[in-house]
Every structure is written in structure tokens, then in C-alpha cells.
Amino acid sequence: MNQILTYSVYGSAILVMLIGIYAVLTKKNLIKIVIGLSIMDSGFNLLLVALGYIKGGTAPIFSPAVAGKDVLMVDPVPQALVLTAIVIGFGVTAVALSLVIRLYRKHNTIKIDEIKTLKW
């Protein structure tokens, strides 16, 4: 049972990540590529949080309800890392999209094949 869960959770996270990478590598549309980047990040975030999960654990917050009791808590470090990763991912997405808008202004297209002043 646990084995199945392991495979399915990690497998789906990795699959989402691979879908994102596939989109980045094959798509011709610039916005599609940026969407691929954001999907890639999502997959990774899921993977990392899943790695920090502990069965039967609860959120690492010592609220009055659990204070003083001996409760199992999930690993807080991956959560903190994911928090950072999400915010950084958003920053990168925003910058990427502004680059896309500027490329569109200049070349009047968002197809990657038609923007080829430099060698790709």
C-alpha cells in the first residue's frame, strides 16, 4: 500500500515536472514556454512538500490545541524552502512575461521561429 502511494505521489510530481520541461523544449509560442516554466516549478514544489510529509503528522504549528501534547509533526524545512521557491518562481515568471511583451513589441510575433536575429 505504502509502496503504491510512494510511487504515485512522487511519480505524479515528477510527471508534472516533465510535462513542463517538455513544453519548454518543444513549444514554439513564447507564452506557452513561460507557462511550461511555471508548471515545472509547480511540479517541483509538490515533490519537495511530499518529501517532507510524515504519516500521521500534523502541521508544524504549536497552536493552543496541540501545545504541550506529544504530537508528530511534518518536516517544516521543505515547507520553508518551497515558500522561497514559489516566490522566486513568481518573480522569474513576471520578468519572463515582460520580456515576451517586449519581444512582441519589437517583432510583432510571439513565435520563437520568427524571432531569430541572433542565432538560436
Binding site: 509547480s42 514544489n45 509538490l46 512538500v49 511530499a50 517532507g52 510529509y53 503528522g57 500534523t58 502541521a59 504549528i61 511534518v74 515547507q79 518551497v82 515558500l83 514559489i86 516566490v87
Partner: peptide, 17 residues
């Protein structure tokens, strides 16, 4: 993703997402 984070007991991350 946010729901999954919530189910994995990561409310902070769910909130951010």
C-alpha cells in the same frame, strides 16, 4: 496544488500557493 499541499499538512505553503 494548493489542495494537495493542504492535505499534506502544509498550510503555509497552501496559503502562498
Amino acid at each position: 496544488l494548493s489542495v494537495i499541499f493542504y492535505l499534506l499538512h502544509a498550510p503555509d505553503v497552501a496559503l502562498t500557493e
